[in-house]
Amino acid sequence: MAQLNMAQALNRALRDAMTDDPNVVVFGEDVGPYGGVFTVTEGLTAQFGEDRCFDSPLAESGIVGTAVGMAMYGMRPVVEMQFDAFAYPAFEQITSHVAKMRNRTRGKVALPMVIRIPYGGGIGGVEHHGDSSEAYYTHTPGLTVVTPGTTADAYSLLRAAIESPDPVIFMEPKSRYWSRADLELPARTDAMNRAVVRRVGQDVTLIAYGSTVQTCMETADAAKEEGWDVEVVDLRSLTPLDEDTVCASVRKTGRAVVVHESSVFSGYGAEVAATVSEKCFHWLEAPVLRVGGFDVPYPPKDLEEHQLPHPDRILDTIARLQWEDQ
């Protein structure tokens, strides 16, 4: 048993994957000897050599495009985009090639590759360092999109993402990099493609992913004082969405709130809310509500507390779920 934070768990996942499979290569900006701006690739170049973990020129489209070619040749590249907004230059490669190559070639060319994207706010970053960009990727068929909400899942999800035969957008909630947990590695959680009930409750389901899992757990504690028994579902996998786990929870509680950092309009929560409404309509006591960022560009440090979902706002939203005493 070791106490690790999420960055260390991700580092261990890369290390174990590279040890198990010589085809796994890691590259990107500052990921070599420096070890990555969030230390996720620390020590990999020293352990595996420069052919296995290396710095590339500073160009995200080139990084992803190069990874496509390497994957075509049978390697399993894991590339880092450094920050959410800095992945945008790679958007064409991701949407036009990474997502489409298997389909284009009728399954002849698979692209087993992982694009790691630290995302979200809450760290007092300057502009372009706080975006929640997941919906751009979940809207693109052919991509698998996952995001760990806990340190244990971070390890398991990254191992599974690297082993996946399909390209995976691996979104790392950067405000949770330093969350510590006791882990028995390399034991794995069964996190790929599956949501999990993080906390069992009877009255309302909070559906969360990434950084908001912890926020919702805190909310659930606070909700007890209000008399609400809150269930928390951690999606983990955004594409595919584990509808069974989500719907089972909502059918039990009859109420649901989706919580994410990104702007609400056309955000991932809209898809979850629509799915729940379609599949759980007769079980619902109230419309599915969403708590997310305002529809504004991600704000500067001094204002980000207003943008991020926090327990008070989530509790206020729960209160609007048409309870019988209202």
């Binding site: 489209s61 080139g62 992803v64 495009g65 190069t66 990874a67 496509v68 070619g69 390497m70 994957a71 075509m72 040749y73 049978g74 390697m75 590249p77 064409e92 490669q93 036009s96 090639h97």
Partner: peptide, 12 residues
Amino acid sequence: TNGPHAVGLAHA
């Protein structure tokens, strides 16, 4: 966009 793919395959 095929340029980086070619580089990647060659590098691999």
